[in-house]
Deep mutational scan, measured.
Amino acid sequence: TSEVNPQMLQDLQAAGFDEDMVIQALQKTNNRSIEAAIEFISKM
Rank of each mutant, 00 (worst) to 15 (best):
A36W: 01
E19M: 07
M21R: 06
S33D: 05
G16R: 00
V22G: 13
D20V: 07
L12F: 01
S42A: 13
L26I: 06
N30V: 00
R32Y: 07
N30E: 14
Q10V: 07
D11V: 11
E39T: 07
E35Q: 10
A15S: 06
K28M: 12
F40K: 08
G16Q: 00
T1S: 14
V4F: 05
Q24N: 09
I41S: 08
D20I: 05
E3K: 12
A15N: 06
G16V: 00
E39R: 07
G16I: 00
I34R: 13
N30M: 02
M21D: 14
Q7C: 05
Q24A: 12
Q7D: 10
Q10Y: 06
E39W: 01
A37C: 05
Q24R: 11
S42K: 15
P6H: 13
Q7T: 11
S42E: 15
N5T: 02
T29E: 03
D18S: 09
Q13G: 05
D20T: 12
D18T: 08
E19S: 12
I23N: 11
N5E: 04
R32V: 14
A14I: 06
S33A: 01
V4T: 07
K43V: 10
D11Y: 11
A25R: 01
Q7A: 08
G16H: 06
D11T: 12
A37D: 04
Q10K: 14
Q10M: 10
F17K: 01
A25C: 03
Q27D: 09
M21K: 12
M21Q: 15
N31T: 02
L26Q: 04
D11R: 10
V4M: 04
A14E: 14
G16K: 00
L9E: 06
D11P: 00
A14M: 09
N31Y: 07
F40T: 09
E19R: 15
A37P: 04
F17L: 05
A15G: 03
T29S: 04
A25H: 00
M8I: 04
E35M: 06
K28E: 14
Q27Y: 08
S2G: 14
K43Y: 08
M8A: 03
N5R: 01
F40R: 07
M8P: 01
R32W: 03
S33G: 10
S2K: 14
L26S: 05
D11L: 09
I41H: 06
F17Y: 14
S42R: 14
T1I: 11
E35C: 03
L26F: 03
A14K: 13
A15I: 07
I38E: 13
K43D: 13
I23C: 08
E35Y: 05
N31W: 02
N31A: 04
M21C: 10
A15K: 12
I34M: 14
I34G: 06
N31V: 02
A37E: 04
A36V: 04
E39C: 05
V4A: 08
V22T: 06
A25Y: 02
A15C: 06
D18Y: 00
V4R: 03
T29R: 01
S33C: 04
A25Q: 01
A14F: 04
N31G: 09
Q7R: 10
P6S: 12
Q24C: 12
K28Y: 13
S2Y: 07
V4C: 06
A37V: 04
Q24K: 14
A14V: 06
V4S: 04
L12W: 00
N31S: 14
Q10I: 06
N5W: 00
Q10L: 09
S33H: 00
I41W: 01
G16C: 00
Q27A: 10
L26P: 05
D18K: 10
E39G: 08
K28F: 09
E3M: 07
Q27E: 12
A36R: 04
D11G: 03
E19Y: 07
Q24T: 13
S2L: 07
A15M: 15
D11N: 13
A25T: 01
M44C: 12
E35W: 03
E39K: 10
E3I: 03
E3H: 09
E35L: 03
N5I: 01
Q24G: 06
A37H: 02
M44R: 12
G16L: 00
E19G: 11
I41L: 12
F40A: 13
I38H: 08
K28D: 07
S2T: 15
Q10H: 14
Q7G: 09
D20H: 07
L9Q: 10
K43I: 04
E3F: 08
T29L: 00
T1V: 09
S2P: 15
L9C: 10
E35V: 04
I41K: 07
N30I: 05
M44T: 12
K43H: 15
I41Q: 06
I34F: 08
K43A: 14
N31I: 02
P6K: 15
N5Y: 00
N30P: 03
V22L: 03
N30C: 07
S33M: 00
K28V: 09
Q10G: 07
I38F: 04
P6V: 13
A15R: 14
Q13K: 15
N5K: 02
L12M: 10
A36S: 11
Q27R: 12
M44P: 09
N30Q: 12
T1A: 12
T29A: 02
T29C: 05
Q24M: 13
D18M: 02
D18P: 10
K43P: 05
M8K: 03
A36M: 06
M8F: 09
N30S: 11
K28R: 12
M8Y: 09
P6A: 14
L26H: 11
E35K: 09
E19L: 07
L9D: 05
I41N: 04
L9H: 05
A37T: 05
V4P: 12
N31P: 04
A25S: 06
N31M: 03
A36D: 11
R32A: 15
Q10P: 00
P6W: 08
I38C: 10
M21E: 14
G16D: 03
S2M: 10
A25G: 04
Q13P: 00
K43L: 10
V4D: 05
A37Y: 01
L9W: 01
V4E: 05
P6Q: 15
E39L: 02
Q7P: 01
E35R: 06
L9S: 10
A37W: 00
T29Q: 02
P6F: 10
T29V: 08
D11S: 13
I34W: 03
N5H: 08
N31L: 01
I34V: 14
V22M: 01
L26R: 03
F17S: 03
Q13T: 13
F40M: 12
E3S: 05
K43S: 12
Q24D: 13
Q13N: 04
Q7F: 02
L12C: 03
S42H: 15
E39V: 01
Q10R: 14
I41R: 05
S2D: 11
Q24I: 13
E19F: 06
S42Y: 10
D20C: 08
F17P: 02
I38V: 13
A14L: 08
A14H: 02
I23T: 12
K28G: 11
A36K: 08
E3R: 08
I41F: 03
L26D: 05
A36E: 15
S33T: 02
Q24E: 15
T29P: 03
T1F: 13
K28P: 01
I38M: 13
M44V: 14
L26G: 05
L12S: 02
Q7I: 07
D20W: 06
A14T: 08
M8E: 05
F40L: 09
D11C: 07
Q13W: 00
F40W: 15
I34Y: 04
N30R: 11
A36Y: 02
M21H: 06
A25D: 03
T1D: 14
T1C: 11
A25V: 01
I41C: 07
S33Y: 01
E35F: 04
M8W: 08
L26A: 03
A25N: 02
K43R: 13
L9N: 04
S33P: 02
I23L: 08
S42M: 11
M21A: 13
E19W: 01
N30W: 00
Q10E: 11
T1R: 11
S2F: 11
F17N: 10
A37S: 04
M44L: 11
Q7K: 14
A15L: 13
Q27V: 12
A37Q: 04
L9T: 09
D11M: 09
A36C: 09
A36H: 08
E35H: 09
R32H: 14
S2R: 12
G16S: 00
K28A: 15
M44A: 12
N5P: 02
A14R: 11
Q10F: 07
D20K: 13
T1N: 15
L12A: 02
F40S: 10
M8G: 02
E19C: 08
M21T: 15
E19A: 11
F17I: 05
D18L: 02
I34E: 11
L9G: 03
N31K: 01
K28I: 04
L26N: 05
I41M: 14
V4N: 08
E19N: 07
F40E: 15
M44W: 07
D11H: 08
Q13H: 04
P6E: 15
K43E: 15
K43C: 09
V22C: 15
